[in-house]
Amino acid sequence: MPVRALVVDPSASAAVRLAEVPDPVPGHGQVLVDVSHASLNYGDLNDARSGRVPVGAVLGADAAGVVIQAAADGTGPAVGTQVVALTAGAFAERAAIDVGALAEVPKGLRLAQAVALPVAGVAALRSLRAAGLGPDKRVLVTGASGGVGRFAVQLAARAGAHVIASVGSTARGEGLAEFGADEVLIGLAGLRRPVDVVIDSIGGPQLVAAWNLLAPGGSVQSVGWTSGEPAVFPPYATVGPAKSLTSFVIEGDVGADLAILTELAAEGALIVEIGWQGSWERFDEAAEALRGRRIPGKAILELGSGELHTPVPSPQD
């Protein structure tokens, strides 16, 4: 029995369309999940056009729903458990998901909130961990108004770091001080003192500027490249006291980190901000708002009946 899914189609307006695909068959260490919510990431939009996800394949990485078939090997959650996962092909009504790629959703946390965490939350958590986050660090987060950025600001502040949030406009910086940012800057204007950690999702010239601000022994984690612009380093910019620029990608099982993030969110220690929420039949609308940077936080897609829902308006709309 086929299920509906959002698949890659270069001829569609957002390179994505709703289609029917075969019902997934779970492997030995996988559960079958009835997906009710998905989260749209900037990387999904790139995947739909870059060829990384083949034409006709199901798009997406963030899914949340209910287990309807337990894993055959006896591992993982039981039938009826609400879960959130980071998995390929997330934008489908049903998905076969590795037990290591998911976490149970704690009581008190809505699925619409939990589904915002996999890509953005895990990227924030792991990039900060890789950079050597600590209470004595000065941490610069670029693109701080986006999904990864807002989680990175909160997690770095929670660790006791001095957090500098860089955004594209005053409006985009609203709420970041409440999330724990000690400084909120437009671009990098006024930043003179060196920083120890940079979580960069912008790329281009701003990545070069952030590198120049990095203290000896510091680390830049490149988690995205939303600018679409090249980063041109002047001669000798990379010659001098040791510091590092590291490419970042999420690899391996994420279940343990998802459990940490969902527990923090359930406790109210990690705020999930949803800037757009509506039916997956309004994918084009969500994609346009995300690409136009009109969404603070995350865009959440509701799967299922096809009924249209009123999106949560952006403060800038």
Rank of each mutant, 00 (worst) to 15 (best):
A95Q: 13
L125I: 05
A123W: 02
L140E: 01
A95F: 04
L155Q: 08
P118I: 09
E93P: 00
H162L: 14
G108S: 12
Q154H: 13
K137F: 05
P118R: 06
T142W: 02
H162E: 15
L86C: 08
A123I: 06
A88H: 14
S169Q: 08
G147K: 04
P118H: 04
G108Q: 07
A112P: 00
F91R: 02
Q154N: 09
L109H: 01
R110K: 15
R129F: 09
I164V: 15
A112K: 14
R158W: 07
V122D: 02
A130I: 00
G168H: 06
R138C: 08
V141D: 02
K107L: 14
A90N: 06
G143T: 05
V115D: 01
R110N: 14
G100L: 13
V139W: 04
A165D: 08
A103H: 03
T142P: 04
T142A: 12
A114S: 07
G160W: 10
L86D: 06
R110L: 15
V99F: 04
P135S: 15
A92K: 03
L86I: 11
K107H: 15
V153A: 09
G132V: 12
A124K: 02
F91P: 02
L117A: 11
V105Y: 00
A165L: 03
A123L: 03
K137E: 09
A157Y: 01
L117T: 03
H162D: 14
R129D: 15
S169N: 10
V115I: 10
A95L: 13
K137L: 09
A85T: 08
A120L: 12
A156W: 00
A152S: 10
